[in-house]
Nucleic acid binder design. Structure first.
Lengths: 228, 228
DNA sequence: AAAACCTTTTGACTTAAATCAAGGGCAACT
DNA sequence: AGTTGCCCTTGATTTAAGTCAAAAGGTTTT
C-alpha cells in the first residue's frame, strides 16, 4: 500500500459499518513529520491511536549508552500507539519518522467509542495485537536463544518469503538499521555478512542480497548449525 | 487469587453480561495436568483459549541446544493460548504445567462467539493483549540493551514493587527458572547474585533476597552503572 | 540413616559479540 | 575536481556470558 486513500483500505478498518467509518473520519486528524522527527517518546502519556498514512515510522527502544533496538518499521496502513490505549496510558516505546511521513491520529476517547460500537473493529484490533505478540515472541526467541548469524539468516528468509521475489532480497533499510532490527551493531553485521558471503551462503551486492543456499540459511536460523 | 471459583472472578470476564457468562460456562471444559506435563507445543494448531484455574502454567520457547526462555509463568485467572485464536492458528510458544494444575478450556468457536456478542469481553481481551505487548517490549529491551546484572536488578525491583513487601523479596521460582526468565543460565545468575551480595546491593538467603540498596539496583537496571 | 536426586555454587576455560580505532567507498554539494 | 559527510568494512582488543566439570547443599525416598 503506497498510501491510504480511504479509511476502508486500512486493514484495521476493514469490514466496518459505514457509520463507524464516518465517525472515524470525523475525529481523524492528519499530522506530518519530517525524517527523524520524534512522534512520541517512551513514557509519554498516550492520548490516541496513530495510523501510518504515508512514509514509514520507526518504533524503537534506546539504551542510555545509545544502542538502539528497533521494534517495528511500519508503513502505510499500520496502526501504532495502541498499547497505551488499552493498557495503562504511557507509551512503552518511542516512535519517530523513519522517512518523511504523514500519519492519521485518532483521539483516545473517540476511537474507544468506535471500538465499543462496532465488534468488527474490536476483532480487527485483536488480530493486530495478536500478530504483534507473535512477532515479539519470535524476536524474544531470536535474542535469547539464537546468535546473530541465526537471526540474520531468519530475517533474510523472512524477507524473501514476504517479497515473494524468489531468492533475491532487496534491503529496504540501511545495514546499520538492519543491525538495530536484529539487536546487534553495524560492525558485527558487516562481519557476518562477509562470512556468509565467503561460505557461499549469500552474495551481497550493496543492498541486494542473493540467497545462494536457502537450506543452509534455514539450518543456521534453526540453530542446528553454526557459522564457522 | 488462589482459585477461580466463579467465572466473573476472572479479570478477563469482568463486567460481562450474565448471559455471556452462562454461555461461557456452557462451553467450558476443565482439564488437569501434572507438573511438567505438556499442555501444547509451539506450532500446534490452536483450537481454543485456556485460563489457569489452579496452579501455575509456564509459557516458553526452547532452542535446539536445550536452552529455555520462559515468556510467562501464569497463575489462576490468567488466559493463555489466545494469540492463535485471533491471528493465524498455530501457537507461537509452548505451554506446560509448572505445578500440578487445572485449566479451563474454551473452544475457539464458542469463545469467538462470545467476544462478538459482548463488547466488554472484547475490551478485556484487548487490555490483556496490550499488557502482554508492553511486557514483551520490556523483555526485548532487557535482552537487547541490558546486561544480565541490569535485567536481574530490574526483576528484583519489579518483584519488590509487585509484592509490596518492602525490600524483602521472596522468589517463587527456583534460581534455575529465574535464570530462564531472565534469558540466561543458572551459573551466570549465581555468579551475579554472589557479586551483588559482595557489593552490598543485596543479601541472599536461600530464596529470600533482601534489597539493601534499591537506588544502586535502580542505577544498574537503568544501565547507568556496571557491576564491576 | 543412607541413598538418590535436584539445585546451586565455584573454578577454569572458551567464545560470541561489543568496543575502539582507522581506513575505504560513494554520493552530494560547492 | 575537490571537499564534506555518511555509511560500511576491517583489524586489534576487550569483555560479558556461555560451556564444561566438579563439588557442595538440600530435599525427598527408601
Amino acid at each position: 500500500m503506497d498510501r491510504c486513500g480511504r479509511l476502508e483500505d486500512i486493514p484495521l478498518f476493514e469490514d466496518l459499518e459505514s457509520e463507524q467509518l464516518q465517525d472515524l473520519a470525523q475525529i481523524l486528524k492528519k499530522q506530518n513529520f519530517t525524517r527523524g522527527q520524534r512522534i512520541f517518546t517512551e513514557g509519554d502519556e498516550g492520548n490516541g491511536l496513530y495510523v501510518v498514512d504515508l512514509g514509514q515510522v520507526k518504533i524503537f527502544k534506546i539504551s542510555p549508552a545509545g544502542k538502539e533496538q528497533i521494534l517495528h518499521i511500519f508503513g502505510p496502513g499500520n496502526p501504532f500507539g495502541e498499547i497505551a490505549m488499552f493498557a495503562g496510558e504511557s507509551f512503552p516505546a518511542s516512535a519517530e519518522a523513519f522517512t518523511d511521513c504523514q500519519v492519521l491520529f485518532f483521539s483516545r476517547h473517540g476511537f474507544l467509542e468506535c471500538v465499543r460500537k462496532d465488534p468488527s473493529l474490536a476483532f480487527n484490533m485483536l488480530a493486530v495485537l495478536s500478530r504483534r505478540l507473535r512477532k515479539f515472541a519470535a524476536l524474544i526467541e531470536d535474542l535469547s536463544l539464537k546468535e546473530v548469524p541465526g537471526r540474520l539468516a531468519a530475517h533474510l528468509l523472512y524477507l524473501s518469503e514476504k517479497d515473494g521475489a524468489g531468492d533475491k532480497v532487496k534491503l529496504e533499510v540501511s545495514k546499520g538499521h538492519l543491525a538495530a532490527l536484529l539487536g546487534t551493531i553495524p560492525e558485527t553485521l558487516s562481519r557476518i555478512l562477509a562470512k556468509m558471503n565467503r561460505q557461499g551462503l549469500i552474495e551481497v551486492n550493496g543492498s541486494t542480497i542473493l540467497l545462494l543456499d536457502p537450506d543452509g540459511l534455514e539450518d543456521l536460523a534453526e540453530g542446528e548449525v553454526k557459522l564457522t
